[in-house]
Nucleic acid binder design. Sequence first.
DNA 1: AAATATTTTTAGACTTGTCTAAAAATGTAT
DNA 2: ATACATTTTTAGACAAGTCTAAAAATATTT
Lengths: 229, 229
Amino acid sequence: MSKNVYFCLMYSFTEENYLKAIYKLQEQSDMAINTNAIATAIQTKAASVTDMVKKLSEKKLLKYEKYKGVELTHLGKRIAIETVRKHRLWETFLHNKLNFSWDEVHDIAEQLEHIQSQELIDKLDEFLGFPSHDPHGDPIPGRNGVIQQNNFILLSELSVGESGIISGVVNHSNLFLQHLEKNQLVLGKKLLVQEISAFDQLVKVQIEDKHLQQLSNEVVRNILVKKLS
Amino acid sequence: MSKNVYFCLMYSFTEENYLKAIYKLQEQSDMAINTNAIATAIQTKAASVTDMVKKLSEKKLLKYEKYKGVELTHLGKRIAIETVRKHRLWETFLHNKLNFSWDEVHDIAEQLEHIQSQELIDKLDEFLGFPSHDPHGDPIPGRNGVIQQNNFILLSELSVGESGIISGVVNHSNLFLQHLEKNQLVLGKKLLVQEISAFDQLVKVQIEDKHLQQLSNEVVRNILVKKLS
DNA sequence: AAATATTTTTAGACTTGTCTAAAAATGTAT
DNA sequence: ATACATTTTTAGACAAGTCTAAAAATATTT
C-alpha cells in the first residue's frame, strides 16, 4: 500500500511571507539564499528562519540542506509569485481607486495579500482592468504566474539629449517615494536629459517639456525609465 | 507613583471575532451571555471561551464573573461595532464593485474585516459613496459607532392589499439567500400581498407589478420589507 | 432537600511561530 | 595548519490560542 501524499492548498500568513522574501532574494542573487539574509529581510532571527525553512522543506516548497542555504521549488516559487500578484493588485486598487499615494500602499497591501480567495483576486484584477504594472511600476504577474519583463533602464543610463518616461523605481522606501512625489517625479512623466555636470554629476532634466530640475546621483540611479528612441 | 495604564489599540483577529460574536448575541438577548452560547457561535469549545473571556476581561473589553456570563464594556462594544462596520463595508464593496452575489460576500468579508487601517476603511467608505446598508440590508455603523435603526417589518406582517419594498433578511444562510436570488426576491423589489391562503398560509405576492409568486411561511418570516403606506 | 443533569472552569497538553543562549559547522586569517 | 570570527543549528523556553478530560459550580428534577 503506497502512502498517499496530500498537497496543502492553503499556506499561512507567515509561510507566504517567507516564500515571498526568499523569492525576492533569489531574484537578486541567483545563488542559494542563506539563513541570515532571510532573517534580515523578514526582520526576525536566524534561529526562527532555520525552523521555518525546515517546515517549508517538508512541505516541498523549497530545497534545504543544512548550512547550505535554500532554493525554492517550482511549487514554492509559484506560491511566492501568487503572493506578489496579490500584493501588486491590492496596491493598484489602493492607489487607483482609493487615492492612496504610492508611499502609503505597501503596508496595507502586506496585509491584504494574505486574504484567501482565488475568486476575489480574479474579480479584483478584472475590476482594475487587468493592469500590467502596480503604482511603483513593478510588473503584476498574470493568473498563470508569468511575469512580463520590463525593458526599463536607469535614468542614470540616459545620455544628454535622450529622453524617457518614468516607469518605475529601484528604491521602494517611503522616504524616496515621498521625495519623488514632492518633486512631481511620478509614473508617466516624460523627462529629457539636458546636461550632466562634469563636476558633481548632477543631472539637469526637463520635465514634460516645461520646468527644469537638478537631480542627484542618488535619485537618477533609483528611477527607471522607458527610453524614447 | 501611580501605575500607568496603557490602552491597547490593536486587537487580534481572534479577539475581534470574540467581541463581534458576543456583541451579536447581546443584541438578540439582552441578558448576560453565557459561555456555551459563545462557544456555539464561534465554533469552538467552552474551555477555550473561558480562557479568552478572561483575557478580554483583563483588557477591560468585557465584564466577566465566573459562572455568571459576560457583558461587553463600552470599549468592547465600540470595537465590536467597528468590526461590524468593516465587515459590512467590505461586503458592500464585494457586491457593488466586484459583482459577487449576496451569498458569496460573507466568507471573504470575514477575512477582510480584520485588516488594520483606519484610513483604509474611511477611504473605502468614501469610495462606496457612504452606503447606509450592506447587500443584505443590514445597516452599516458610522465612523462614530452609531447604527441607524431600520423600521423594517417582516413580510409576514403585511396584510392582504398592503405592499412593501424588500429591504433585508433575517436568515443570512447561503441556502436562503440563493433561494431568494433564484426567485428574483432581491433588495429593492416591490411586493404587493394579494392573498394569504387560509388553509396553508401560503402568501401570494405580486412582484414589481408583474408576475405572481407563492411564498412559503418560512420565506415570508425571513424577509424584511419597508412598508409602503 | 437530595439526587441528577447541565454548565462552566481548571489543569495539563498541543500547535504555530517566536526567542535566547550555547554548540556545531563553516570561513578566513596568519 | 592553527587560531579566530562568522554563520548556522540545536535545545529549551515562551506566548497565543486551541483542545480533552476531570473537577467544581449551578440548575433542575423528584
